[in-house]
Each structure stands twice: as structure tokens, then as C-alpha cells.
């Protein structure tokens, strides 16, 4: 875990607003199987607009699978997933609709190695949103500045450090102006000294009121920006609470065990 600097810690939370009425994501009684293996069991989750949720849990608990179901990189077999009022079914049109509005950041960045940073950022706006190239490039530069690497625009992903690549990946998602951002262990493939630069970008996103779901082991980050921490084990949500209560007073035995392992 990396401590985030005091200055960023101070300006966290106050003006982040969570909508009381607008639901961003709703998961109702969702089950998923990999062949015969029951990976997700009876998941119920309601995420309001502007909410920032951290999902924690031991490896193999189904955290990643859960958020991958939200933009249908994985298919669920029972229950409902409703994103921005669109229910995810086998209908390709609906899936595309949801994916346009949901950004995703991967553990291994998954930048397109054959395209420059700028091309990585403008690819989807041009081909999916139909935005003119000049405009898409302007937006891309804006987000590159935001993640503090505008000078790398014409390099290739292979020339960047891991932390820089992950920041580009975040910028790439932001270029699509998503309503929701999903983070799948965004810092676990990074060298320790690069974790901070990525977390800072995520924190500033949270401050802007982005709806976020993060699968992460960064408990400092969870404490600082999350409205809610969800603990998963064996494919189910075991416990959820506000970060303060979650860390200071875990209820379930499994949560206690997990926290005792991860917090030394």
C-alpha cells in the first residue's frame, strides 16, 4: 500500500456529491457460472450516480468477474444487471450502448501497442462517437494534460513506464466521456514507486464526481475516497459499509481475517 500525500488527502471528500435519486448501476440477484463452477452468487448491488465504491477481497473471490460483468466482458446467467437504465442482455446493441458509457481500466493497461499515445486516445472517439479528428485530438490532449503526460503524445506505449501507461489508459477511457469508470486492479501490475501517480489521477477523478467502481488492494485509497467498501469472498458480497466503519469495526469473521492479513 502506498500513502497518498497529505495535501491530496486534505482536499478529499467534502464537495463530492452522491445523487440520492439517480441510479447508475443496479445488480439484482445475479449469478454467474464458469461451466460448472459457481463464481458469482446472488449479487445485489445498487450504485448511485457519483458514488465511489471499492471492492476488496481475497484473490479468486470474484471481484474482477463482477466488474467485468458490468460492461459484459463476461456474461451472467441469472438475475439482472441494469446500467444507466439499460439492462444487459445478449442484445449486441444494448451491450454497445452500455460500453460506450462505461470506461474500464485494466490491470495490464491493454494499450494498443501499434498506435501512438494520441492515436490510442482518439481511436474510439473517432470510430465510435464519430467525432472529427481535430476535435478528438484536442480532447485527447486535454486529458493527457490532466494525467500530466502531454509530452508523450506521439510516443508508442512501449516507450512509456508502467505508471505512465496506466495513466494513458485512464485518459483513453476518459476521452469517451464515460458516465461510469470501472477499475480492475489498476495498480497491481505497477512497480511501487509508480502506484502513487496513478492513484493521484484516480483521486482527482473522484473529486470531479465520477461514478467509480474500483477493485483494488489499496486500502489507503479506499479509506480516502470511497463512499462504500464492499468485501467479497467465495463469489458473494460478505459485507459492505462506509470505509470508517468497515476498517474500524468489521463484522464478519472473514472480513476480520482478511483485514488482519492485509493491514499487517
Amino acid at each position: 500500500m502506498t500513502e497518498v500525500s497529505a495535501t491530496t488527502q486534505d482536499r478529499a471528500t467534502p464537495h463530492m456529491t452522491v445523487s440520492k435519486t439517480n441510479v447508475a448501476i443496479e445488480v439484482i440477484g445475479m449469478h454467474k457460472w464458469y461451466a460448472d463452477f459457481h463464481v458469482l452468487r446472488d449479487i445485489n448491488l445498487k450504485v448511485m450516480e457519483g458514488e465511489r465504491i471499492v471492492i476488496a477481497g481475497p484473490s479468486g473471490s470474484g471481484k474482477s468477474t463482477l466488474i467485468r460483468c458490468i460492461n459484459r466482458l463476461e456474461e451472467h446467467q441469472e438475475g439482472q444487471i441494469i446500467v444507466n437504465g439499460t439492462e444487459l442482455t445478449a442484445d449486441i446493441k444494448r451491450i454497445d450502448e452500455v460500453r460506450r458509457e462505461v470506461g474500464m481500466v485494466f490491470q495490464h493497461f491493454n494499450l494498443f501497442p501499434h498506435l501512438t499515445i494520441l492515436q490510442n486516445l482518439t481511436l474510439a472517439p473517432i470510430w465510435v462517437r464519430g467525432i472529427p479528428k481535430a476535435e478528438a485530438e484536442a480532447t485527447a490532449m486535454h486529458y493527457l494534460e490532466r494525467v500530466k503526460i502531454p509530452e508523450q503524445a506521439n510516443k508508442f506505449p512501449g516507450q512509456l513506464s508502467g505508471g505512465q501507461q496506466q495513466r494513458v489508459a485512464i485518459a483513453r477511457s476518459l476521452c469517451m466521456q464515460p458516465k461510469i469508470m470501472l477499475f480492475d486492479e489498476p495498480t497491481s501490475a505497477l512497480d511501487p514507486e509508480m502506484v502513487k501517480e496513478v492513484l493521484e489521477v484516480m483521486i482527482s477523478l473522484a473529486e470531479d464526481g465520477m461514478t467509480m467502481i474500483c477493485v483494488t488492494h489499496e486500502m489507503g485509497f479506499a479509506r480516502q475516497v470511497a463512499n462504500r467498501v464492499i468485501f467479497m469472498d467465495q463469489g458473494q458480497i460478505i459485507e459492505q459499509n462506509e470505509p470508517e466503519a468497515f476498517f474500524s469495526n468489521p463484522q464478519h469473521e472473514r472480513t476480520k481475517l482478511f483485514l488482519s492479513q492485509i493491514l499487517h
Binding site: 457460472w33 461451466a35 460448472d36 452468487r41 446467467q77 463512499n227 458480497i237 460478505i238 459499509n241
Partner: peptide
């Protein structure tokens, strides 16, 4: 906002997959 607190009392046991995913 303490209404978000939730603790699962009983674990959901693994169910066999519906016919759509196995067999």
C-alpha cells in the same frame, strides 16, 4: 448513510449451473 451497512449472515451455497451453462 449508515443504511449502507450490510453483513451477510449465511453464505450462499454453490448451486449447480443452469442447463444453459453446463451439460
Amino acid at each position: 448513510m449508515s443504511d449502507i451497512g450490510f453483513v451477510r449472515a449465511d453464505l450462499v451455497p454453490a448451486k449447480p449451473a443452469p442447463n444453459r451453462t453446463s451439460g
